[in-house]
Design a protein around this nucleic acid. Structure first.
Lengths: 258, 258
DNA sequence: TGAGCCAAGTTGGCTGGCCAACTTGTGCTG
DNA sequence: CAGCACAAGTTGGCCAGCCAACTTGGCTCA
């Protein structure tokens, strides 16, 4: 809460991220009370030794995460002290599992290289005839199977994935070290019936319902780096979203439109 | 794209919203090409006759919606021309259905008033002994049932809902006219089995899978105004989310934690 | 006592400016 | 011809200031 707190590298680089991280911690630890009020922007600015604009930038992040309200004329109010997962926890099964204290596992069932079909070319923005790498992995939490993951990689990424040992837990971490960055993702969530492979791997009956998440991930340049389809056993996970008039990131659509 | 475009009340109030709305339309109509580049911030600022800061505020919205990238050193790149639904389309079944050209319908199955249980008090932040209004509604798209909606309202809101005719299609619209505003929502999405009521109303078998969305909505002050549980027939809808390192709003968690 | 006015406090919005970090293309050099 | 250095262009970030819109609580007045 003091200037000293900013000296710690609690967040990368920019001032407003540090302020946001500090405020986030203060909020979730209950410093302002459950439905309490935040100090005024001006007071925070003085406290952190930054301009009001920087404080507003930090508060906008907390606003988007649903931690605080923001309303002209009144101090900001603490909405909830619930922990908010970071982006990477959503993107990486491994990272997510570890942040919950569970032990993530993964077993590569198959990895094939073949020409991309029309849908894959569309999603990964590839030229006709381009080859893709397709993986099928069973994912476990503390030993119990929870998810089947089918991922299609473009050549540049797939070549690196193919080099990885079959028992490597995380794919995204070694990819990051090779300069493949994951910065944006579009997710679609619905329900499907388990096929024969799903049933065999997850130990459920064929036709039993699975929670499906389809995801296209891109790097900072907007180039697709992965197109994945994950199928979860019901009861193991749920997806949670916050949106607001101020900053929305969620939409709902019918099956046909995708 | 010109100053003239800003004269139209395409968006409420603030300049940056108008700029954002205009750019959004230009992008989705393909003015910059599928994976084309946007003009520089400075050029846009001059074009719209606003400061660069205002343009940046507008672009931040498009960034959060996943329409454009943003990367230091390079012009912004168009990520996708896919239409992005507005917040209200997510919040209101009625609004959402109409935006797709479908005819939304709703039939009130029951409305009871009773003391809130522990979970309801928790979600709506009510004092022990407070009474809530609980509705059960069957929702249809162009006549076919797609969703069962169970909503719990706090007294202030429930009193208004109870006054509405049983066949009114939209609840949120009349509520807005009475000063009840919906500005923030937390959603949780998972799979459940249909119970007897679900099966009867939706015409499916008992135990068959449904896509469940639980939602707590708050007004600008952070006061909860509704707690709802919607159960969709599989294949009728999917939920779609965009997130990015820059502005994330999504998280994933296990069943136990909620 | 109750209603309404009013002033202080607070956030929303916008401007103009400055510098740093990064990308890209150009042109030079070995 | 390959590779490197460099400059121009662009976005990220931060600041200081100003005004408008709105909320709240206290005060006044009937």
């Amino acid at each position: 809460m003091t200037d000293v707190a900013l000296d710690q590298d609690r967040a990368a680089g920019s001032l407003y991220r540090k302020v946001a991280a500090d405020l986030r911690e203060a909020i979730t630890s209950g410093s302002f009370g459950e439905a309490g009020r935040l100090p005024a922007e001006g007071a925070l600015a003085e406290q952190y030794g930054v301009s009001r604009g920087t404080v507003r930038q930090a508060l906008a992040m907390l606003r988007a995460d649903g931690l605080v309200t923001s309303r002209r004329g009144t101090r900001r109010v603490v909405l909830g002290t619930a922990r908010v997962q970071s982006f990477s926890e959503l993107l990486s099964f491994t990272h997510w599992a570890r942040s919950m204290g569970e032990e993530p596992g993964g077993r590569l069932e198959s990895l094939v290289r073949r020409p991309a079909d029309a849908a894959e070319r569309e999603h990964l923005r590839l030229e006709p005839g381009t080859e893709v790498y397709v993986t099928l992995r069973l994912r476990t939490l503390s030993g119990t199977p929870v998810m089947v993951e089918r991922t299609v990689y473009p050549p540049r990424v797939g070549e690196l994935v193919a080099e990885l040992p079959a028992d490597v837990v995380s794919h995204t971490e070694p990819l990051r070290e090779h300069g493949i960055l994951f910065t944006d993702a579009d997710h679609t969530i619905d329900v499907v019936a388990a096929n024969a492979d799903d049933a065999r791997l997850l130990g459920c009956r064929r036709g039993s319902p699975l929670l499906r998440e389809r995801r296209r991930t891109t790097d900072p340049t907007g180039t697709p780096v992965e197109w994945s389809q994950d199928r979860y056993l019901p009861g193991t996970v749920a997806f949670s979203v916050h949106n607001s008039l101020a900053a929305s990131a969620l939409s709902r659509h019918t099956r046909e439109s995708d």
